[in-house]
Simulated scan of single mutants.
Amino acid sequence: MPSGRVHEALNLTALGLGSLAYLALGGSPEDPRALAFALAYLAGTFLLSPDLDLAEKEVRARRRWGLLGLFWRPYGWLFRHRGLSHTWVLGPLTRLGYLGGLLALLGFLVQGVLGFWGVEVRLRPPSFGLEALGFGLLGYYLSQWLHLVADGIWPDHDLKRLRRPR
């Protein structure tokens, strides 16, 4: 299986080629949809790699989180390597859900601590345009899918395991 560096090189090559094609077809680099796509693709490549499910082994994506990388260790305990976290639809959703849960917990703690000191804080999630959010999800999922293809996991991978031998 490819190393983390190989996964990143493949993803960056695909992003570069896709960006060249986008620009050649008259796309604008200032388009918010293109920015959302590129940022989510890079986040999926460098911060939210499917290999975060390796609980005992230190992976590049977890190191990039710095001290916050410790919060990803329970994710590795929840999902065995190349299990549900390495599926085409649910795998990327598990990482987004886990990250959303961590952010919600952090927001709750910040409100509680500041509320204890008498400071009222109303934290709201950022509002994105629905179109930019869709392009961001597309970029994130494409980065995840390229990782899975490099690992030899194709969309029908799970279906093959469900079939019974005759």
Rank of each mutant, 00 (worst) to 15 (best):
P2W: 11
G134E: 01
L102Y: 11
L109Y: 12
D51R: 02
E120S: 13
V89F: 13
G112A: 12
S3V: 05
L130P: 02
H147R: 05
G139C: 06
G83M: 09
R64M: 15
L20R: 10
G69A: 07
W145A: 03
E131R: 15
G44T: 11
R64P: 10
L130W: 12
L48R: 01
L138H: 02
A24S: 13
E8H: 07
S85Q: 03
V119H: 05
P74Y: 06
V6A: 15
D53I: 02
T87E: 02
L146M: 08
V113E: 05
H7R: 04
W77H: 13
S3C: 07
L78K: 00
L130T: 08
G44R: 00
D151Q: 01
L15V: 09
D156G: 10
G18F: 00
F79G: 00
V6I: 14
G69K: 01
R60Q: 13
W117L: 15
S28L: 02
G107F: 01
P2V: 08
P32Q: 09
K57R: 14
R80G: 15
W117G: 11
G101H: 08
H7N: 06
A132L: 06
P126Y: 13
L99W: 00
H81F: 03
E56P: 02
L130A: 14
P50G: 10
L105V: 10
W88S: 02
P2Y: 06
H86L: 01
E58P: 11
G152A: 12
W65D: 07
F46K: 03
F116K: 03
V149T: 10
Y140H: 05
G129T: 10
G100H: 05
G129W: 10
G16Q: 04
D156H: 03
G134C: 07
G83C: 11
Y141K: 06
A40Y: 10
A61C: 13
T94N: 08
V149F: 15
A21M: 05
G4Q: 12
V6R: 15
S19C: 07
L12F: 07
